[in-house]
Structures are given as structure tokens and as C-alpha cells.
């Protein structure tokens, strides 16, 4: 209607809060948390008391098993990667 009043934009904003790089802050906190958990976990595992500590043969064995498992994943994922890329 002709008498309707259209409120003009006030130009108000949240100020500094609006300019906060939220994504960057979240990613930084996440990175720090990952470093703390991963680094702390590795440190605590490697400094377990002598009776509970795993010997290097165990770690080497796990590494070889991981390589073999990774080899199978590599075979599957190279195909997945190409099928995905060519059909995308």
C-alpha cells in the first residue's frame, strides 16, 4: 500500500565479531587438539613402564602387516580413484 513505510537499512553490524576468522580459529584449535592427542598418546605409549612396554619386534611386525594391508587398499583405491575421476 502507499502508506507502507519501508525501513531503510541502518548499517548496523556486529563490528569486530563479524570480522572474526571463525574458520581459521576452529582449524587452529583442531590442529592443536590433534597434536596434543597424537603427541601425548605416542609419548605415553613409548614411556610405559618396562613390564607393559611393547618390544620393537612387535612394532616391526605391526608395520609389515600394515604395509600388506595398505598394499591391498592401494590396489582397490587406485581403481576407485580412476573410476571416480573418469565418471565424475
Amino acid at each position: 500500500m502507499a502508506n507502507d513505510v519501508v525501513t531503510p537499512p541502518t548499517g548496523r553490524s556486529l563490528g569486530w565479531a563479524e570480522r572474526l576468522p571463525v574458520r581459521k580459529i576452529v582449524l587452529t584449535i583442531l590442529t592443536a587438539a590433534i597434536f596434543v592427542v597424537v603427541g601425548g598418546g605416542i609419548y605415553k605409549t613409548l614411556t610405559l613402564p618396562a613390564g607393559e612396554r611393547l618390544d620393537w619386534e612387535f612394532w616391526a611386525n605391526l608395520f609389515v602387516i600394515g604395509l600388506a594391508l595398505g598394499a591391498v587398499y592401494a590396489l582397490i583405491d587406485s581403481a576407485t580413484a580412476w573410476c571416480t575421476a573418469s565418471c565424475a
Binding site: 600394515g66 594391508l69 595398505g70 587398499y73 576407485t80
Partner: peptide
């Protein structure tokens, strides 16, 4: 793909 597979396999193990 090969690098990703090996990293994941080792990480998982």
C-alpha cells in the same frame, strides 16, 4: 593412491 593406501594401512595397524 599407492601412498594413501600404504599410509592408511600402516595407520590402521
Amino acid at each position: 593412491a599407492a601412498i594413501g593406501g600404504f599410509i592408511l594401512g600402516i595407520s590402521e595397524s
